[in-house]
Computed example of a mutant assay.
Amino acid sequence: MSDLRHTANTQIAQLHARYTGTGHADMTKYEWFTHQHRDTYASIVGHPTLLNYMSIADGEATGRMKFELAERMLQPCGPPPPKDDE
């Protein structure tokens, strides 16, 4: 039973190392939303048909839409909230 728990913890650690947006128990709401928005923007940029759909819907060029989505990845949910140091 101890061996099973060790392998499960190892697999979770590997998952978090590979995919940073998977979250953890101490993740704040802001961090979770930021990861979700960045993942969505990256998915749109990575799928050309979805990028074309977005650019047509906004009436922008595909390159311009890709640039705007890349800029939105910097702070997708605005500046981070102040931290409480208690």
Score class of each variant (00 low, 15 high):
residue 53 Y to Q: 14
residue 85 D to T: 14
residue 75 Q to T: 14
residue 51 L to F: 01
residue 36 Q to H: 08
residue 2 S to K: 12
residue 49 T to G: 02
residue 48 P to E: 15
residue 79 P to Q: 08
residue 83 K to Y: 00
residue 63 G to R: 04
residue 69 L to A: 09
residue 42 A to G: 15
residue 18 R to L: 12
residue 64 R to K: 10
residue 77 C to Q: 09
residue 42 A to W: 03
residue 42 A to C: 02
residue 12 I to S: 04
residue 82 P to A: 01
residue 83 K to R: 08
residue 65 M to D: 05
residue 7 T to M: 11
residue 64 R to C: 01
residue 70 A to H: 09
residue 12 I to P: 00
residue 54 M to V: 15
residue 40 T to G: 07
residue 53 Y to L: 14
residue 11 Q to I: 09
residue 32 W to L: 09
residue 27 M to W: 10
residue 17 A to Y: 01
residue 9 N to R: 11
residue 40 T to D: 05
residue 64 R to E: 13
residue 10 T to W: 00
residue 15 L to M: 13
residue 86 E to K: 06
residue 3 D to P: 00
residue 37 H to L: 14
residue 57 A to T: 07
residue 1 M to T: 13
residue 41 Y to W: 11
residue 68 E to V: 13
residue 17 A to R: 13
residue 17 A to T: 11
residue 76 P to A: 11
residue 61 A to M: 07
residue 42 A to M: 06
residue 13 A to G: 00
residue 85 D to R: 10
residue 32 W to T: 08
residue 6 H to A: 12
residue 29 K to Y: 06
residue 7 T to C: 04
residue 37 H to V: 14
residue 78 G to W: 08
residue 25 A to T: 08
residue 75 Q to C: 06
residue 31 E to C: 01
residue 57 A to C: 01
residue 37 H to W: 13
residue 65 M to I: 05
residue 9 N to Q: 06
residue 47 H to F: 05
residue 39 D to H: 13
residue 21 G to L: 01
residue 52 N to R: 15
residue 27 M to Q: 14
residue 50 L to C: 07
residue 12 I to N: 05
residue 82 P to D: 03
residue 59 G to L: 03
residue 10 T to N: 08
residue 17 A to P: 01
residue 57 A to I: 02
residue 4 L to R: 08
residue 71 E to V: 13
residue 71 E to Q: 15
residue 84 D to I: 12
residue 70 A to W: 02
residue 63 G to W: 03
residue 76 P to G: 10
residue 24 H to A: 10
residue 39 D to R: 15
residue 30 Y to E: 10
residue 14 Q to Y: 05
residue 71 E to C: 12
residue 44 I to S: 07
residue 43 S to G: 11
residue 69 L to D: 06
residue 77 C to E: 11
residue 4 L to A: 11
residue 13 A to W: 00
residue 11 Q to M: 14
residue 36 Q to F: 03
residue 35 H to W: 14
residue 56 I to K: 11
residue 85 D to W: 06
residue 76 P to Q: 08
residue 15 L to E: 05
residue 59 G to T: 09
residue 5 R to H: 06
residue 5 R to G: 02
residue 18 R to W: 03
residue 55 S to G: 06
residue 8 A to D: 10
residue 9 N to M: 02
residue 48 P to C: 05
residue 62 T to Q: 07
residue 20 T to Q: 06
residue 24 H to Q: 06
residue 29 K to L: 07
residue 38 R to C: 14
residue 40 T to V: 14
residue 44 I to P: 06
residue 16 H to D: 00
residue 29 K to F: 03
residue 44 I to C: 07
residue 63 G to P: 02
residue 9 N to Y: 07
residue 67 F to G: 07
residue 14 Q to H: 10
residue 9 N to C: 02
residue 28 T to Y: 01
residue 5 R to V: 12
residue 82 P to R: 02
residue 74 L to F: 14
residue 61 A to C: 00
residue 28 T to W: 03
residue 84 D to G: 02
residue 70 A to F: 04
residue 43 S to A: 14
